[in-house]
């Protein structure tokens, strides 16, 4: 009964790791990159790959929250709206005495987390279906946006955010650094803490989890709050990178976040998955987008290619077990 009892806990086989969804997604990214570098000179250049990571950071950050929510058995359709609110709101909450812009950042992150918290309250206490609750929240925020921004674009005027968008300490974009930190935190929370185990338990079987003593309400509220916070960070990063916030800036990221999560092997039905898959999922997604841009297709073809590739990848990389 030693700790490394080979009968109770057989050594994880290399084949199991090599056959896992996250690893397959990494392979897919590598294959696509190699093929694209041969087909299109300049694709494999350091600068271009770095650019892909920079775009991937935006999708990856918002997908952190989406991963938590989906694993817990929910879905967050309000991430796009929260990103927009954060990007548009940051310049508006700036106060005169705050030269660095830190106050605005903290205020926006607090607000985004609070929005997520409200989503969680609706799902956990009012027992509104996650799709409905977050959809209603998105609608609500859209109204709020028109109220605060009036539809025009606002520019950042925030030194800290400008730095976040432009700086490359050691050649690595600041956004990517933020993403790396956030990923490490997310992976640790998901796989190395009791909280993470509760999130998996809740998504796999809420009733059995509750009867095992897991506080389903608190866990639910927490994952939506995390999603709100992650969307807030994403909104700020986008504002820094674009220099401007405008209504609709967050819209594309709703679908990307869900697609990245699912491509990474996390079950949309909840209870199984990992953020380790979402990371290559996000990079795969921006790579596909970049390639489609490279082939110089019209917006229509781009959209068709994107949808068809996502669908094909899903079919390739294993289907969900038929649960219903």
């Amino acid at each position: 009964m030693s700790l490394s009892d080979p009968v109770r806990f057989p050594r994880v086989r290399a084949r199991a790791i090599l056959g896992s969804r996250p690893f397959l997604t990494v392979l897919l990214v590598a294959a696509v990159w190699i093929a694209a570098s041969f087909a299109k000179p300049g694709f494999g250049a350091f600068g271009h790959l770095r650019y892909l990571f920079e775009l991937g950071a935006v999708v990856g950050l918002v997908a952190i929250g989406q991963t938590f929510v989906v694993i817990a058995g929910g879905i967050d359709l309000s991430v796009g709206a929260i990103i927009t609110v954060s990007a548009v709101g940051a310049p508006l909450v700036a106060i005169p005495g705050d030269g660095s812009g830190a106050f605005a950042i903290l205020a926006i992150l607090a607000a985004a987390t609070a929005i997520g918290f409200l989503n969680g309250l609706g799902v956990a206490l009012l027992r509104a279906h996650p799709m409905i609750m977050t959809l209603a929240m998105a609608t609500f925020l859209q109204g709020l946006l028109i109220l605060i921004a009036g539809g025009s674009a606002v520019s950042a005027q925030n030194p800290l955010l400008e730095w976040l968008g432009d700086a490359r300490p050691g050649g690595v974009p600041a956004g990517v650094i933020v993403w790396i930190f956030a990923s490490a935190l997310a992976l640790a929370a998901l796989h190395a803490t009791p909280f993470g185990a509760r999130v998996f338990a809740l998504g796999a079987n809420p009733l059995a989890s509750t009867l095992s003593g897991i506080d389903a309400r608190a866990t639910t509220i927490a994952v939506y709050a995390i999603s709100g916070f992650a969307s807030g960070v994403t909104g700020l990063l986008l504002l820094g990178m674009n220099g401007q916030g405008y209504v609709g800036i967050g819209d594309p990221y709703l679908l990307s976040s869900i697609a990245a999560v699912v491509l990474g092997g996390t079950s949309i039905l909840g209870g199984a998955g990992t953020y380790a898959g979402t990371i290559p999922g996000a990079i795969l997604l921006v790579t596909i987008t970049a390639l489609i841009t490279v082939v110089n297709a019209s917006p229509g073809w781009r959209s068709i290619l994107f949808g068809a590739l996502v669908l094909a990848l899903l079919l390739l990389s294993g289907r969900e077990a038929r649960r219903r």
Binding site: P194, S209, S212, D215, A222
Partner: peptide, 13 residues
């Protein structure tokens, strides 16, 4: 699982 429910949420497993 019940131990996960009991332990502090963000302690390390």
């Amino acid at each position: 699982l019940p131990s996960f429910a009991r332990a502090a949420a963000l302690s390390l497993r």
